[in-house]
Amino acid sequence: MKHCVTLTLRENVGGNSIDGSGLCLSRIIGKSELEISKLSLDSETEDCIGELFDVAVGSSVSRSMVLRGDLSNFHHLAANHHSGTIEIDGNVGDYLGGAMEGCRAGMSGGRVLVRGNAGKQAGYRMRRGEIFIAQDAGDFLAAHMIAGTICVAGNVAGNVAGNAAGKAANHVGYGMRRGSLLLATQPVLAANRFSGPIPGSGRWIRLIEPVGDQKLDRMLAEMAAGNCVTSRGDAAAGGVGEILWTG
C-alpha cells in the first residue's frame, strides 16, 4: 500500500485568489500530518497548509492526494504534478495543471481528477499526464497544450462556475500543439485552426484506466467503442493535437 494524503478545506476562503501550486503531491507525500500542516502553501504568503486544511494521512493502492472542498479560488493546482494521482472532490480555479508564469510547461505526468468544475486555462501548456474533469471547464481549455490527455465530461461551451454568468466558454484548444482533448459535447472550433471532423480513431481510449467517476467512465467507454469524431489542430500554431467528442 502507498501513501494517501487527504486535505479537507476548513472554511470558505472568500474571494481571495490563492496560488495552489504548493499543494504538490511530491512535496507532501511521505510526510506526517504535522509536517504537512507546517508546509507553506506558496512562496508568496506565510500561510501554512494546516491553517486552511485538515490533514489526514492514510494508505491507498496508488500514491495519491485527495483535496476536499470548494477550491474555486485555488489556481495553478497540479502545476508541477508529475506522478501519482490528485483527486479534487469539488471545484477548482484557473490553470489546473497549467504552467506557472515564466515556465514553459505545466504538469508533466500523473493523473488529476476533478469531480466538480474547472476554471479557465485548464491544461495550459500541459506537457504530459491526464486531467479528468467530471463537470464543466472554462475558457481556453487546453490552450497551448504540448501533450497529454484532458477529458471533460461536462460542458465546455456553456455557463461555467467561475465565469461571468451567461458567458460562453470558448477558445478550446487555442494554440494547441499536440495532445488529446476528449469532450462530451461538440466544441466551437475555428475552421482555419482545426480540421474538419474525422470519424472514428478512438480505439486507443480503451488503454486509459477507469477513472472511478461514472460519468467520465461512461463517456470514455462510448468513445473507445468508436462513437466519436476528431478534429486536428491548432493549425495556426503548427499544431497537430486532437480534439475528440462523442457524436
Binding site: S83, G109, E130, W204, I208, V240
Partner: peptide
C-alpha cells in the same frame, strides 16, 4: 511524422504507446 505518442497513467506507472 504523423505518429502520435500517448502516455497512459497506470497503477504501475506510465505506459507509452
Amino acid at each position: 511524422g504523423h505518429q502520435i505518442s500517448k502516455v497512459v497513467n497506470t497503477r504501475d506507472g506510465d505506459a507509452r504507446y
